[in-house]
């Protein structure tokens, strides 16, 4: 039990509103959204900011949810056997931040990295164009809407997406993604 206080202090120090480590299900995603929405509501956050945070949160959480689904059943001999992820939401003086972390197959890293870099290089106008291309099916060729999710996160965030691939073993890495939403409404 002696760890409890240090967990508490650590979370407080890092302005963490919410952190979850475990299996990601549709119900869990719903519960988290509900809880954080209530919290934003209760604290009288600016309406525009609140909407953006909620939007980015939906995309980030659902990205992880779909992403994990897309992973093939792992080999029993593989140490990474679970479908767990890390979900974290925090509030700093100037920004809200939403961080997700989950395992990805190493094979997927080059493509994922290329996409994130392209998004981070794009201007507001270019992101809008990219969004329309992917929406109408002429953008990066890939199944589903995962590509659209990240572009949308970047558009709503208005800031560069932070990311990292932490090597786990020869087959997997731990992918973390950070999206920030400014608490200062424009204009």
């Amino acid at each position: 039990m002696s760890m409890t206080y240090s967990y508490y202090k650590n979370m407080q120090l890092n302005n963490i509103i919410f952190v979850y480590q475990g299996e990601v299900t549709a119900d869990l995603v719903s519960s988290i959204l509900q809880m954080v929405e209530n919290k934003l509501e209760g604290e009288g956050e600016d309406r525009k900011v609140k909407k953006r945070v909620f939007n980015v949160m939906v995309e980030c959480l659902q990205n992880v949810y779909h992403h994990l689904d897309a992973l093939p059943p792992t080999d029993p001999s593989n140490p990474v056997r679970d479908k767990t992820a890390l979900l974290m939401i925090g509030r700093e003086e100037k920004d809200y931040y939403i961080i997700t972390g989950n395992h990805v197959l190493n094979d997927r890293i080059p493509d994922l990295k290329a996409r994130l870099d392209r998004i981070n290089r794009s201007s507001k106008e270019e992101l809008k164009q990219l969004y329309q291309e992917v929406l109408t099916g002429t953008g990066f060729s890939e199944k589903g809407t995962a590509g659209l999710g990240m572009i949308d996160i970047a558009r709503k965030s208005g800031q560069r997406l932070g990311y990292d691939f932490h090597p786990v073993n020869e087959k997997y890495s731990f992918f973390s993604l950070e999206a920030r939403v400014s608490r200062i409404p424009e204009k």
Binding site: N55, V58, E59, L135, T145, L148, D152
Partner: peptide, 12 residues
Amino acid sequence: EYFNTSSSKCLL
């Protein structure tokens, strides 16, 4: 009020 990107394809 809100929609996610998977809904955006369906709306289209």
